[in-house]
């Protein structure tokens, strides 16, 4: 589903590469944590997969497309197949919950009939049924992130990219959010989540890719935040 093949990314006006010779293969339906300290290159991996940036060298393949060869006009089509969730929710403050989720479908030109059918279903999936008319500022942080997740998955993408989705939430709420992501994963959606929340990673026991200074230092199935055997 997502493949990084010897990818190096150097940002302009920077001498040190943000990613160096990174190779990762993520299959359809996987749930992968990308962990590492700030500046280790987690966000760069997600930005490359979204084609917000292009690799300096190496190939990035997403949903069967070689992003290095994808013409700019086809980028929107690629992004319709990728949902994205961020630490800061990125909701529109002047729209209520329903409108925020519906916005993602409206700008794709979906019919009002379809929107009125799909949005309530999605809100129910993320546990927000009954809160469609609320404004974002009336919701808790966890609820706002559920709205953002609803917006990310309402178009049924095959991939969901999450950049520190629990970074602004307290531990209990964070676990709820990750369990919601797990439910979405069980419907077949590939999930890539960048995080440095050790509790969550340890609780979920999924594949963990650890980055350090732009290099993959660990890639293990059913793993923990810290390497197995490295206690402390």
């Amino acid at each position: 589903m997502i493949r990084f093949d010897h990818v190096t990314k150097t940002y302009p006006r920077s001498t040190r590469p943000a990613l160096f010779d990174v190779s990762i293969t993520i299959d359809r339906g996987e749930f992968v944590f990308i962990v590492g300290p700030s500046g280790s290159g987690k966000s760069t991996v997600l930005r490359l997969a979204l084609r917000e940036e292009q690799a300096t060298s190496g190939a990035v393949l997403v949903a069967g497309q070689d992003l290095g060869r994808l013409p700019l006009r086809k980028v929107p089509r690629l992004r319709r197949d990728i949902g994205t969730v961020f630490q800061d929710f990125r909701l529109l403050g002047n729209k209520n919950v329903f409108q925020n989720v519906a916005f993602a479908l409206q700008v794709l030109g979906k019919s009002g009939h379809y929107i009125r059918q799909v949005v309530p279903e999605t809100l129910e999936l993320v546990g927000l049924d009954g809160k469609a008319k609320r404004m974002p500022h009336e919701l808790s942080g966890g609820e706002q992130q559920r709205v953002a997740i609803a917006r990310a998955v309402v178009n049924r993408p095959s991939i969901l990219l999450c950049d520190e989705p629990t970074g602004n939430l307290d531990p209990a709420i964070s676990l709820d959010i990750v369990h919601l992501l797990d439910r979405i994963n069980q419907t077949g959606t590939t999930i890539v989540m960048a995080t440095h929340d050790d509790d969550i990673v340890n609780d979920m026991r999924r594949r963990v890719v650890e980055l350090s200074d732009g290099v993959v230092v660990r890639d293990e199935e059913d793993s923990l935040y810290l390497p197995k055997g490295d206690v402390g």
Partner: peptide, 17 residues
Amino acid sequence: RREIGIMRLVGASNATI
């Protein structure tokens, strides 16, 4: 910029934006 950012994220075409 918020609306535009979201539109680009969910894959709205350039014409729509």
